Amino acid sequence: MARINVNINPDILLWARQEAGYSIDEVAVKLSVDPERYKNWERKGQDIPFGKLQNLATYYKRQIAVFFLPKVPVKIKKPKDFRNLSPTDSFLSKEVLLTLRRSAHLQRIAKDLEGENYWNKKLLWLNEIEKIKNEKDIITRLRKLIGIDIDQQLKWKSESEAYRNWRTSIEDKLGILVFQFSMPIEELQGFCMTDNLPYIIVTNSNHSYTGRIFTIFHELAHIIRHQSGMCLVDKVEQNQKEEWACNTFAGSFLAPIKTIVPTDNLKEIETYSRKLKVSREVYLRRLKEEGLLPDVKFYALLDKIKATYKKKPKTKGFVLPEVKSRASRGETFYNIVFEAIGTNRINYTDAAHALGLRVSRLINEI
């Protein structure tokens, strides 16, 4: 069978590679071609073997049709980087770049299916919050809007139950979609996007449940400030004023002063933090913020807590695709897509793509 060569817009080839986070040398190795030959494809876009383009589509997680567009698609607008990393450490890995792309794609789908007016109405609460100047009053009002008081929070039996309840309430009551995807935990623990509707929060599924809960409210603090941001919530230092303020907000929301019991006993800190479904570090920081623990004692206890952590080996068990889809995209997005199928606003192929499922599995879910 004769090999088919094609001509494309070379700028699209460059765009696709950069958006996926590949270097020319990496691509050349994967395609088993000389780097100079690949560079020539990006310069001229001529005589590219169709089979190589298919390989690139797989590597870049793109549909093959993308390479034949006449114009270069708009680049994903990345959230502001609040991670305070050195230039050499601040690069974004392929996993994170893919998560940013995927999240923005789901955001666009949700907007297209429900419409801009729908999502604007969902965010009207922000107008009310903006008029409140005192953070304590903001938290009180948000608690009422979300519909979860401290007594309900204390009744939850597990951290996973707490995460599900917080996530569902943020989506239902505040109109913010909460996605979760696997990312390198040392690189990014969460981010939010507010440049388009609907607003979204993304947590790292490699993080603990308490870490994901804290990330949700840290990112909610950014959203209240109308900021998009990429964050490492566990590694915030006091000189990071914006991040420190968001951490303070999240801590105050999840562990109000009336729930804080003064102590410098690690076992008691563990007990109290478990009741609130927050990490020991969050409870310890709340003690310090409320003036219930001197700095010297705080840092000594913090070191002891960190010393107890051991890196857990990753365990990969089989998860049904539809279960994974619901977990990553959230019930709200999942339901939006299924309702759109029922009202013929989306076809089965596009719906399956949006949910990361095969059409056959999608049909079984209906």
Rank of each mutant, 00 (worst) to 15 (best):
Q189S: 02
I138A: 00
L113F: 13
K39R: 11
E322G: 04
T140R: 11
I24L: 06
A354P: 12
K39A: 02
I257W: 15
F67P: 01
T263N: 13
N84W: 15
R326N: 06
P256S: 05
N247C: 09
H105N: 14
F82P: 00
N364S: 13
M193N: 04
N7G: 10
T203M: 01
L188S: 00
T259R: 08
V236R: 07
L97M: 11
K277I: 02
Y22G: 02
W244C: 08
K306A: 04
F50Q: 01
N120Q: 09
I213Y: 03
T88D: 14
T308Y: 07
N55E: 11
A221Y: 13
S208N: 05
K71Y: 13
N55M: 04
I336W: 11
E187W: 08
A110K: 13
T203H: 03
E322Y: 11
E159M: 01
K80E: 12
N196G: 03
P35A: 02
I4K: 10
E95S: 09
C246P: 08
K306Y: 11
T271Y: 15
Q107C: 03
F298V: 00
I260K: 03
E339P: 02
R167F: 07
K121L: 11
Y334G: 00
L145C: 06
I150V: 08
Y209M: 03
N247P: 14
L292R: 15
K277H: 14
L357P: 12
H105V: 07
L85A: 06
I201N: 06
L123N: 14
R167S: 10
L188N: 00
S103G: 12
I346F: 06
I260L: 02
R358G: 13
E42M: 02
T271R: 12
L254I: 05
D151H: 13
L53M: 04
D11T: 14
P321K: 02
K71F: 14
A65N: 11
L31M: 05
R326T: 08
L276F: 07
R83N: 04
L197T: 04
Q63R: 08
D295N: 13
E242I: 09
W119R: 03
D195V: 01
L357A: 10
Q189H: 10
L266I: 05
K311Q: 10
G330N: 09
H105M: 13
I139C: 01
F249K: 01
Q227C: 07
F253K: 03
T88S: 15
V66F: 08
P49V: 00
H218M: 07
G51W: 00
M193S: 02
D350M: 11
V359C: 09
I170E: 06
Q227E: 15
K131G: 02
K304G: 03
K44F: 12
L98N: 15
G251T: 06
K314F: 09
D151V: 05
V29T: 09
Y272H: 12
L31W: 09
K306N: 09
W244I: 00
V233M: 06
E42H: 05
E26M: 07
K267W: 15
L220T: 06
A221F: 10
F91L: 06
K310Q: 11
K157C: 03
A65M: 02
N5G: 13
E95T: 15
P49N: 00
V29W: 11
V359A: 07
V323F: 12
K324M: 08
F91H: 14
